[in-house]
Design a protein around this nucleic acid. Structure first.
Lengths: 200, 200
DNA sequence: ATCGATTATGACTGGATGGTCAGTCATGTA
DNA sequence: TACATGACTGACCATCCAGTCATAATCGAT
């Protein structure tokens, strides 16, 4: 019987290579030849594993969001405010390779590329992120760790936006770790006070 | 003497047309011919007003950031917490055309396009936004409108990130106005509580 | 060894597009 | 009316690149 390869592994390897190339040159500027070279493969070979250039980008984003999914939603329900804060802090503190990807992601998410379906998928991710925080907040309200008069739904979304803003700033402007930590601590401190303080 | 035109006005018109085209098709996908058609000009004419395709995008972003500059930094120093909140609220509530531009901007800000100089310029804008809030916070601390133990520098940056997150979510996911208002109010309410509450 | 199915390859092609430029047009002056 | 000058144009060109395909290498079963 013939030669046999692990398709999935091959695809992973290609995505890894593509990632490197895209971070450096950008998705639109990078050519298939660039990616093939980085992957140590012939140009034609890529087409055995991906239908076309677009499919590479889509798979890449999907893989990335799967990782984010685990990072963001994998956490268990916080029982205390402190747990909640830890989770937030961890979420905001994205690893460098994720940070590097931010710019590439946005390039791909631009109107030149993103189909409606793709956009909807991404939007839904952030919706779910909001829901995630909403769930946590509701729970914390139930166990009386935070004030009960907050609109959990909206607050969850606002926290998602805050988290996002922090992550994006880090990714887009390669803010030094030290400064980013400072921002993060101050943001979280402010948030915590906002969550516990009694009504005005 | 020959026909005479107002170069600046012409450039503005071209940028307006380009904006429309880019919002719809994206910068990378749009062709010079598209922009020329939208501007009601011949392809060659564009090159009388802009050196090349890149120059159009750069001018466009510069014009946009000039407008942002006024929107963001034009506000006067808040004397009360309420003034501060009003300013913030106004800043977060970007007009629709600015929101539409967000995606285009990010496409252009991707590694395919953005030179180091361009990136630095954008990064500096957001630095200044942080400084802007820092200045306001320091002032509010002086007039004892908010608690004095916050690290104004980091808090300013955090608020810039929060503001950004809210704006980006609105721009990227075309969040309905109603929901966005809800998020905004809740975010600001949380922020205010965080700014006044006594230390833990 | 041999063979055949699968996997790998890179020269090639068709299409697209940024940019040019030789020629035309429009305007105001003499 | 003739002329001078800048504004405008779009056919054309050179380049680039995604995707194809004829050919070759590779492996495993016999």
């Amino acid at each position: 019987m013939p030669k046999v390869v692990d398709r999935e592994e091959m695809q992973h390897g290609i995505l890894d290579a593509a990632m490197q190339v895209y971070v450096k040159k950008g998705y639109h500027a990078a050519t298939i030849a660039d990616v093939a070279e980085a992957a140590g493969l012939g140009k034609g070979t890529l087409y055995l594993y991906f239908k076309n250039k677009e499919a590479i980008a889509i798979s890449m984003v999907e893989r990335h969001f799967k990782a984010l999914e685990e990072r963001f939603f994998g956490q268990e329900m916080p029982e205390t405010l402190e747990d909640f804060v830890d989770g937030l802090s961890q979420t905001m503190n994205i690893p460098d390779d994720h940070a590097k990807f931010v710019r590439v992601f946005f390039e791909v998410f631009g109107p030149s590329f993103a189909s409606d379906a793709f956009s909807a998928k991404v939007a839904s991710f952030f919706d779910r992120l909001g829901d995630h925080y909403t769930g946590q907040i509701k729970h914390l309200q139930e166990v009386e760790q935070i004030r009960g008069d907050a609109d959990a739904k909206q607050l969850g979304r606002a926290i998602a936006a805050l988290t996002d803003g922090m992550i994006l700033h880090k990714g887009l402007f390669s803010i030094p770790a030290k400064r980013h930590n400072g921002m993060r601590n101050e943001a979280i401190d402010m948030l915590v006070r906002g969550l516990v303080s009694s009504p005005k």
